[in-house]
Design a protein around this nucleic acid. Structure first.
Length: 255
DNA sequence: TTCCATGTTCCGCA
DNA sequence: TTGCGGAACATGGA
């Protein structure tokens, strides 16, 4: 689940449920999820605010921040009765409720970091595409002298932080750009279109999700099947591998 | 049983 | 140097 829009939902969920309460205990059910720092140090503290950068969630706990990366199957669950099946870390609050980080495949990370800025710096993350500073000019600069494939570039978190496999395909689909095109060979108009569509796709995804609505049929994500009909031009949807990931695109209008 | 998965990282090779 | 493919990680669902 977790690309930028999903993590944005997690951030809002965290904000709604887990702020302001004293953490009574932190239970680590599977240490493979945790980094090197000791989450126990959160005991007695409260989460004061939440931030997101790309696919990373941060929660301010005073002089340290909780950092969560959701891997492929990470999720949050605030509950009062039974913990979810794949709970890996559980925060017990003094009101008797709990916040569980669940993760079936264990690719996620729950750790502490000095601050979101420090984390972003240490890991060399690029701009968040919904950040104000991510303007067309910045995007254009990222593509300059990049010989790699445009899809690979969109997936690279050091370039832009937050786009994953699904939304990379979606943005390219809307922009009529073939995922194997060389990044530095896109025409000016295409760069602009792609920039606009990256933001639009992510913003719309957040909007649909926050309403609990399904994505409409015009989204490629509803047609991720070899041989399906393109909702935009009637062409044929193809499945291939680009940048090591399963990629769907319309063979007719993506060039 | 086999294949696949919305992520990241590491290694070998061109 | 840059970028690519492949493998690895771990696990359940179709």
């Amino acid at each position: 689940m977790p690309e930028l829009p999903e993590v944005e939902m997690f951030a809002r969920y965290f904000e709604q449920h887990a702020l302001g309460q004293t953490i009574q205990r932190v239970r680590i059910l599977d240490a493979r999820i945790c980094g090197t720092r000791k989450l126990n140090q959160l005991t007695g503290r409260r989460f004061e605010r939440v931030r997101r950068h790309g696919k990373n969630l941060f929660a301010d706990a005073g002089d340290t921040w909780l950092h969560i990366h959701f891997g492929m199957t990470g999720d949050l669950s605030y509950y009062t009765d039974e913990p979810p099946r794949f709970a890996r870390v559980i925060f017990d609050f003094d009101n008797g409720a709990h916040l569980a980080y669940e993760d079936m495949r264990l690719f996620g990370i729950v750790d502490l970091t000095p601050s979101p800025e420090e984390y972003v710096r240490q890991h060399g993350l690029g701009r968040d595409p919904l950040d104000r500073q991510f303007d067309l000019r910045a995007f254009r600069a990222l593509l300059h002298k990049r010989r790699g494939r445009i899809k690979a570039l969109l997936l690279s978190q050091e370039v832009i932080a937050g786009i994953g496999n699904l939304y990379a395909d979606e943005a390219l689909f809307r922009s009529s750009i073939h995922p194997r095109r060389a990044a530095d060979r896109l025409r000016n108009a295409e760069v602009k279109t792609l920039y606009t569509n990256i933001r639009r796709v992510l913003q719309q995804a957040v909007a649909f999700k926050s309403r609990g609505a399904d994505y409409p049929a015009r989204f490629l994500v509803q047609h991720r099947q070899e041989g399906d009909r393109c909702p935009r031009c009637g062409g044929t949807i193809r499945r291939t591998i680009v940048a090591g990931r399963t990629t769907y695109y319309c063979a007719k209008h993506q060039r």
